[in-house]
Amino acid sequence: MSDQATNDRIQDYVNKDDVVLFMKGTPIFPQCGFSSVVSQVLDHLQVKFQSYNVLDDMDLRQGIKEFSDWPTIPQLYVKGEFVGGCDIVREMFESGELQQLMTDKNVARAS
């Protein structure tokens, strides 16, 4: 079980930045194909995003699954709201919904 401190820390992470990606590895060196896809989609959309590498942090790796009630990684948050994992991100990107969501939520752009 994850503790309250981890839960609070995750809540801080998703509040602090508009777009937050919990992934395996980093955008430069993703350690998983699914994490890589989501990171590339965000790059393509030119939104500013903060990523957290769950492989560096076992509390986070377990904690984020419980926080979101979602058993897999990657996980994308936009303005504090859980959007989904790789399949959902890919579907929403292909249909144009993800671009629309970023626009509607007025997220910060990549500089």
Binding site: D69, P71, T72, G84
Partner: peptide
């Protein structure tokens, strides 16, 4: 919702996952 559908499928395959 998309999230709900994924959760439903993952729940059905909980043991396998």
């Amino acid at each position: 919702s998309r999230i709900a559908r994924q959760r439903m499928v993952m729940a059905a395959l909980e043991d396998e996952l």
